[in-house]
């Protein structure tokens, strides 16, 4: 009997301990807006309306996978990840590298032969795939400049705006060899 009581007590203690970890994920919806600018180069930073998106997403897990403590919505992920404790960080940049194909990052992946998520997208890929993927199915904006305006450096990169080629040269050179 004593053993059983101990187990029950232990379980209660565990529930009490984990409750505050899980509860915030349900209780609060994170920041109101997030300035996404760490990768800004050819485009301005994105002011991401987090509060609005929590209203339209079916679950935090739609974007945060398993890190907020909720069960992942993607059945492929749900094969291994289930609802549980909240991760130490839920920020995209803490899991998705901003230098995905650098020699250091590739070496890191190479050092872990057991690693399952070898193809985890980098930060830029994660942002665009997640945002654009959902916007395409939900009818959100999908143009590049709908989310971030292109700067002068970007115009030069794309030979657009004031760097656009003269219209006369664009006629009749479609084919090439």
């Amino acid at each position: 009997m004593g053993g059983r009581k101990k187990t029950l007590l232990g379980m209660a203690a565990l529930m009490l301990l984990t409750a505050p970890l899980v509860a915030p994920a349900w209780a609060e919806d994170g920041p109101g807006t997030v300035e996404i600018g760490s990768l800004a180069n050819h485009y301005s930073a994105v002011t991401f309306d987090h509060a609005m998106h929590t209203g339209v997403a079916s679950s935090c897990a739609e974007c945060h996978h398993h890190t907020t403590g909720l069960a992942p919505t993607d059945p492929t992920c749900a094969r291994c990840h289930e609802a549980g404790a909240k991760a130490g960080s839920v920020a995209c940049k803490d899991c998705h590298s901003d230098k995905r194909f650098s020699a250091e990052d590739l070496a890191k992946i190479g050092e872990k032969p057991q690693l399952y998520h070898k193809g985890k997208p980098g930060l830029k890929g994660a942002y665009h795939r997640k945002c654009l993927g959902c916007h395409t199915t939900m009818g959100g904006p999908t143009g590049c400049q709908d989310c971030h305006t292109r700067n002068d450096k970007g115009d030069a990169f794309f030979n657009a705006g004031k760097y656009a080629p003269a219209p006369s040269t664009s006629a009749g050179h479609g084919g090439g060899h």
């Binding site: 590049c144 990169f157 657009a160 080629p165 479609g174």
Partner: peptide
């Protein structure tokens, strides 16, 4: 060389 049309075209 510069393209005949912008790269966002």
């Amino acid at each position: 060389p510069a393209p005949d049309k912008s790269f966002d075209d």
